[in-house]
Amino acid sequence: MTIPTTDSRAATVFPLCDGAHAAATCAAAPSIAENACLVRSNDWVNAEYKHLVLTAPDLALTARAGQFFHLACPASNDDTPYLRRPMSIYCVNAGDQRIEFLYKVQGAGTRGLAQLGPGDTLDALGPLGKGFTLPANANDAHVLLLARGVGLATMAPLASEAIATGAHVTAVLSARTPALMMSADTLHETGATVVMVTDDEQTSDVVQVERLIRGIHAGRPITFATTCGSNRLLAMLQRLAAQLGIPGEVALEQRMGCGIGACYACVRPFRKHAQSDELSYRRVCWDGPVFDLQETTSW
């Protein structure tokens, strides 16, 4: 595989193809490019997270909810990130040529991102991965979004896509404190019903969140359940969705090397199918990062 190193508003990376399935893989895989994006703003939203807004080339604007970009993070002080960092999409607005990311500043890569300012250029490889697949019968759909921490960023574009198809969306957002709660206003603006729980208010433990979701389901049956950002919430939602017969998906967070399926650094175990005790191994970057809720194992 060849990855272009020039300004790739037009340069495309050919899809990864392997073995006997090469033709089918190439036909189905999306185009990928190194996108030279212009920074519009990069502001703090609270003490830990920043909101990065970019002007992006046309190919980047085809990103869907659940997909991600592999960002070439700049050096900062004594930090010189060697590998790119995967970052899920927070917002895509093709009409405004805008993509957005919401990220926690906690390591060498994100400290570099935090120093970007208006007018700077960021190299974003993508769009990458498999995004969410919403129910076909959207008019009768009730989509649950359950997210905590940085998972809140992944859920925001899914709410927009679901509501645009006619679905009703309920978002249950979890954070340590009210000050660290993010995306609530954005989700309200898209038309989602938002419920917030926090550790400080002692409303975010798994037992209470399960009781909350059961109540939501009793009022309006949930037809599709999604989650991101918490292993405890994933395990609870898997069990609850299995009991109530609700299909769903989970967006996984994972350290990655290449982001395009070549290095196998992000391989992890999955059930071969729901309720199966037999495991298969898949690349989070290429086969995901969105997977079937019941096939995903806890970490």
Rank of each mutant, 00 (worst) to 15 (best):
M1F: 05
T2E: 11
P4S: 05
P4T: 09
T5L: 10
T6D: 12
D7W: 03
S8T: 02
R9M: 05
P15R: 03
L16M: 09
A20E: 14
A27Y: 09
A29N: 13
I32H: 08
I32A: 02
N35Y: 07
A36H: 06
C37R: 06
V39W: 07
R40E: 09
W44L: 11
A47C: 03
H51L: 15
T55N: 13
P57V: 03
T62G: 10
G66M: 10
Q67W: 03
Q67R: 03
F69W: 08
H70S: 15
A75F: 05
S76D: 12
D78T: 09
R84C: 06
R84V: 03
P86M: 00
C91S: 14
C91W: 12
V92A: 07
G95N: 14
Q97T: 02
Q97E: 08
I99W: 06
F101Q: 01
Y103V: 02
Y103R: 04
Q106V: 14
G109W: 02
G112L: 06
A114C: 08
Q115E: 14
Q115S: 13
L116S: 02
P118L: 02
D120V: 11
A124T: 11
P127L: 04
P127C: 07
G129C: 13
G129V: 04
K130A: 10
G131R: 02
T133N: 07
P135Y: 07
P135G: 04
A136L: 06
A136C: 04
D140M: 12
A141I: 13
L145V: 09
V150A: 15
T154K: 00
M155S: 05
P157M: 04
L158S: 06
A159E: 11
T170A: 07
L173D: 08
A175E: 12
A175T: 04
A179T: 14
T186R: 14
G191W: 03
A192C: 12
T193H: 09
M196F: 00
T198A: 12
T203G: 10
S204A: 15
V206Q: 10
R211E: 15
R211K: 14
L212V: 08
T223F: 09
F224L: 08
F224Y: 15
G229E: 08
A241K: 00
G245T: 00
G248W: 00
R255P: 00
G257M: 11
I260Q: 06
G261E: 02
A262R: 10
C266S: 09
V267F: 06
V267Y: 03
R268E: 05
P269Y: 02
P269N: 09
Q275T: 08
S280L: 08
Y281P: 00
V284E: 12
D287P: 13
Q294K: 02
T296N: 05
T296K: 06
W299H: 01
